[in-house]
Simulated scan of single mutants.
Amino acid sequence: MSPQRSRLRLNGDAVLRGTRAGALRGLLLGAEHVLAESRKLVPIDEATLERSGTVSVDEQDLTAAVSYDTKYAVRQHEELGYRHAPGRSAKYLERPMTSEATTVAALIAAQLRRSLRGR
């Protein structure tokens, strides 16, 4: 019996573009997930702070950020002595960043796998 032969052609540039696109999608989905979870904890009075939450992705550096943009966002986040409505708290962004790290990693990994399959 003669040995079977096969040929594999790899287009490395296309693979890199695809994985980069998958990573960007995963970063966006992960950051949006953290934003959604943090909105469940953000101190709420008139919902101005909650509505100021946003996600941004730096395509060049492959990084994502979740931020809140009010003049008191940092103070509300850091001041542990403030009283908040039930279920709302300081560290409203830090807590989901920590507790949802596994979910965020899974979202990114899923998008990378998807990009490698070409879908």
Rank of each mutant, 00 (worst) to 15 (best):
R7K: 14
D13N: 11
E32I: 04
E79G: 00
L116N: 05
E78L: 10
G18N: 14
G26V: 00
T54G: 11
S38R: 04
R83S: 09
G81I: 03
R113Y: 02
G53V: 09
T63D: 09
L35D: 07
R51W: 05
V74A: 12
R75N: 10
G118M: 11
K40C: 10
Y82I: 11
L29R: 05
A14N: 09
A47V: 07
R88I: 14
A110M: 02
V104A: 01
L8M: 13
L116E: 09
A110N: 02
L29C: 03
M97N: 05
R7C: 08
A65H: 07
Y72V: 06
R5A: 14
S6P: 07
M97G: 08
T70L: 09
L62K: 00
R5K: 15
V104F: 01
A65E: 13
A105Y: 01
D13I: 07
K40D: 12
L41S: 10
E37Y: 03
E32R: 12
L93A: 05
L112E: 00
T70S: 07
V74R: 10
L27A: 00
S6Q: 13
K91D: 15
D58M: 04
G26R: 00
A90L: 03
A85I: 12
R25N: 08
S99R: 15
S56T: 14
A23P: 06
L116G: 10
T54L: 12
K91P: 07
L80V: 10
N11Y: 14
G87R: 03
R95V: 15
R39Y: 05
A23C: 13
A21F: 02
Y82S: 06
V66H: 01
A85C: 05
N11H: 15
E94R: 10
S67Q: 09
K71G: 10
N11Q: 14
E94N: 05
Q4V: 15
H77C: 04
L62G: 02
L8E: 11
R51N: 11
T63F: 07
T48L: 14
A109H: 02
M97A: 09
T70M: 09
L62A: 04
L49N: 02
L93V: 07
V42P: 06
E50C: 08
R83N: 08
K40G: 13
A31G: 12
E59W: 04
E37F: 03
L41T: 06
L41A: 10
R17P: 10
E59K: 14
L28V: 02
A105G: 07
E79T: 08
E94L: 12
N11L: 13
A85G: 04
Q111A: 05
L35I: 09
L80C: 03
V55G: 02
R39L: 14
K91N: 13
L27G: 00
T70V: 08
S115C: 08
R83M: 10
R51A: 13
S67I: 06
